[in-house]
Simulated scan of single mutants.
Amino acid sequence: MTSLVRIAPGALVIGKPLPWDVYDVDGNVLLRQGYIIHSDAQVEQLYERGQFKPIAPRPRKLEQHTDERPCNPFAEYAELLATLETTLSAVASRAPSAKSRLLGSARMLERICKQAPDATLALVHLYSVNPNIYEQTLFYGILSHFIARQFNLEHKRTTSLVVSALTANLALIPVADQLNASNHVLTAEQRAVIRKHPERAVEALRAAGISNTRILQCIMQHHEKADGSGYPAGLTGSDILPEAEILALAERYVAMITKRAYRDRMDVAAARKLLHTLSNGQFRPSIPRALLEILGDYPPGVLVRLANDEIGVVKKRPEGHRGAVVSSIISPRGQRYTGTFERNTYEPEYAIIRFEDTEVMPSMDFSLIWGFRNL
């Protein structure tokens, strides 16, 4: 059965019919497809409680993934996840469309990264509290794309890296939720599945007709380490593709900021400290540095508390003499603002004093912070 996916803020529009049935966490139908949402209160309730079963998207021409039309990453989040699930299913079933679907999915993701970089990077932080395997995979693709651009990799290599990020964990999909939910030491069988997953992903891609050498090598090597302690081949140093290290770091960062049954999630400050240590033998030093530069001290999408005791969402990283731009969403008294108020954290009154950790992100349409109006 297709897994349920939470509704992404920005995916619903007042006055328009629901594109799918909406379920609660127990799989009970809340609202049927076609129901028209009438109020902000209904939207808020659906963001808070609603989930849906992704519908296989209709095939689209690749040109539609390469256009420059304006995009709203929050409104497209549900489609990105549905497309990714359908694409990986096509690869696993050796469907004739697998190769074109993969390329289309990669280009779709690259388009939103280029069109709306801050908002797309925000997806990684806003939805990292308890993501499912498809969300995690999407985050790997987003971060890999941004790191590749930081190194000015040519377009073909960047696209190949994004394809690798979207497919490297194909063999873990059936067991990912079980692994994340386990607070026990892994069994020998679970460890074997994990260690074999790069090879199994490569086998699945080859069987589906995908033979790009760089993609297959990247996937095969993305758990190798420069000091030789990785798997499956124990490669060292320059024998490991730079793209494989980029993907490995993207996965590592997502793991840091994601909750697991056996540990809490890190805040970004702690994750940044750990990134600083990863150039000591495990990665080429330039790769962790590149991710640190992309994130900045306060990446888009993190929650922060300001000196005036408001809680806000980081909208933009610092530029020049400006501090990070924050949209305040919760008042000093702990009440949700009806709108958002933009604060420049360079001003002492609005200086960031700490990250605000939360187990549940506030229920709101985050797309409004970035000025999207359901484009």
Rank of each mutant, 00 (worst) to 15 (best):
H145F: 15
R252C: 14
V22A: 05
T277N: 07
K114M: 13
R214F: 14
P300N: 03
R6K: 12
I210P: 04
V304G: 03
L291T: 08
I37T: 07
A290F: 06
G334F: 05
F139E: 05
S279F: 00
N130G: 08
T167K: 04
S39C: 07
A271I: 08
Y23A: 04
L46K: 00
T83P: 01
V325F: 01
R265V: 08
P362I: 07
E199Q: 15
L368C: 04
E85L: 03
L241A: 13
V163S: 07
I14T: 07
Y140M: 09
G230S: 03
I55F: 00
I294Y: 04
G371K: 08
Y350V: 10
G27P: 06
T277W: 05
I257L: 04
A207T: 10
L31A: 11
L179G: 07
P242L: 10
V162P: 07
L161T: 06
G301I: 09
G104V: 04
F146R: 06
L80M: 13
A351F: 01
V268D: 11
A255C: 10
S211Y: 13
I294H: 03
H125T: 09
L4A: 11
P232R: 06
G234R: 11
I257M: 06
S93G: 00
Y47P: 03
K53T: 09
F151D: 09
V5C: 03
L306R: 06
F74M: 02
H155C: 11
K61C: 08
E44W: 00
E79G: 08
P232V: 07
L138P: 01
D24I: 09
F341V: 14
D40P: 02
F146P: 07
E310T: 13
S97E: 15
H321D: 15
R60N: 04
A192F: 13
K53R: 13
L143C: 04
R195F: 05
M220W: 08
G209I: 09
S39H: 05
L235C: 08
A248N: 12
I7F: 00
L375K: 05
D264T: 15
D267S: 13
D67T: 12
T158E: 15
R354Q: 12
L247V: 08
V254N: 08
Y350E: 04
Y127I: 00
D26H: 09
A176S: 12
N280W: 03
V325Q: 12
A201S: 15
N132G: 13
G339M: 05
F146M: 12
A255K: 13
A192K: 14
E79K: 06
R272G: 02
L30C: 06
N169G: 15
E110A: 15
E224R: 09
P242T: 09
S367Q: 01
A165D: 06
A226Y: 11
I257E: 06
R260Q: 11
Q221P: 08
L216D: 03
R32E: 12
A98W: 08
M220E: 13
S39P: 03
R322K: 15
T167I: 11
E154S: 13
C113D: 05
V163F: 05
G15W: 02
R6S: 05
M1G: 12
A351Q: 11
L216W: 04
A78E: 12
A270Y: 02
C218H: 05
M266L: 15
